[in-house]
Amino acid sequence: MITVTYSPGRYLRTFLDSLPSATTHNIVVIMADNGSTDGAPEAAQCDDVILLPTGGNIGYGAAINAALREVDRLGIGNDFVLIANPDAVFDPNSIDQLLECAARHPRGAAFGPRIREADGSTYPSARALPTLSNGIGHAILGGIWVSNPFSRAYKDDLNMDQEREAGWLSGSCLLLRRSALNEIGGFDERYFMYMEDVDLGDRLRRAGWTSIFCPTSVITHAKGHAAGSRPRLTLKAHHDSAYRYQADRHPQWWQAPLRWTLKLGLQLRSVVALQSELRRRNQDNHEDR
């Protein structure tokens, strides 16, 4: 298992404590640490939990790739690697359920569990790949008209009870087939954070592999606890990644006006989103006082 840590705090211990009941297999956890300052990764080290300092905040995909190289160096790898955020909590038998799901799909490369939110609802973690139409429509309308048709098409969450193919799966927890991951060269390190899981799902699909949603496997995820504390960084990174994803898929010279329009539109949206978030936080702080 690989997890990327960045001052994970109390979440890391809860994450590690949930693993023994999640599988009958022995697990070695590689913590690719991107510069934690809270001491939590150091405190968690033991025989089966290995701390791998990456040298700084190098980004999510780059940290995963560094950990994969460490797995190969140590010779502890096998057919699968499980990638999970350190704020996830695994239900009993959830990892074994992912492995059983993988056994049913020999051309499956990525396998994702049902993700339970704090209120008990299911997060739409198995989504369609974004197109220009549903991506732009979701970006513009998602925050003001939740049930708009563009968001519905993109979230693809009408059936979250059936084992099925998806365009991409949330990177908060992914079981990945090493042969498929090696074939496409791992994660794209140009994505500092956000969209690296979308890009992964698309590149796997283009290489002839599938992504499978496995709802019998269940985790709980305290999503965004670290990212939410740094809105200036994370909102910019999110919009930069959205542009990179679409620009990579529209690379022709005659598509340059489209890329320029996307870049400008996403930059403006990033500014608006940041101002809205800062206003919300200021209002919350005022009400708390």
Results as ranks from 00 to 15, higher is better:
104 R>H: 14
260 W>I: 07
220 T>V: 07
127 R>N: 04
194 Y>S: 11
263 K>W: 14
104 R>K: 14
253 W>R: 06
150 F>L: 10
209 W>P: 04
140 I>E: 08
47 D>V: 08
9 G>K: 06
190 R>M: 09
177 R>K: 15
220 T>I: 09
138 H>I: 02
84 A>T: 12
139 A>H: 06
138 H>Q: 14
108 G>N: 10
106 P>R: 12
216 T>L: 07
2 I>G: 01
185 G>S: 11
107 R>E: 07
192 F>E: 02
80 F>H: 15
183 E>R: 13
150 F>P: 11
128 A>L: 10
196 E>L: 03
122 T>C: 07
24 T>D: 12
73 R>C: 01
100 E>C: 12
224 G>L: 04
7 S>D: 02
132 L>K: 05
12 L>Q: 05
154 Y>T: 00
228 G>H: 05
255 Q>Y: 04
216 T>C: 09
281 R>S: 11
101 C>Q: 12
104 R>N: 10
105 H>C: 01
119 D>H: 02
260 W>E: 00
252 Q>V: 02
250 H>C: 02
49 V>L: 08
126 A>E: 07
198 V>W: 03
123 Y>S: 11
207 A>P: 07
94 S>A: 14
142 G>L: 03
252 Q>A: 13
157 D>G: 03
255 Q>I: 06
250 H>Q: 01
126 A>Y: 01
262 L>D: 08
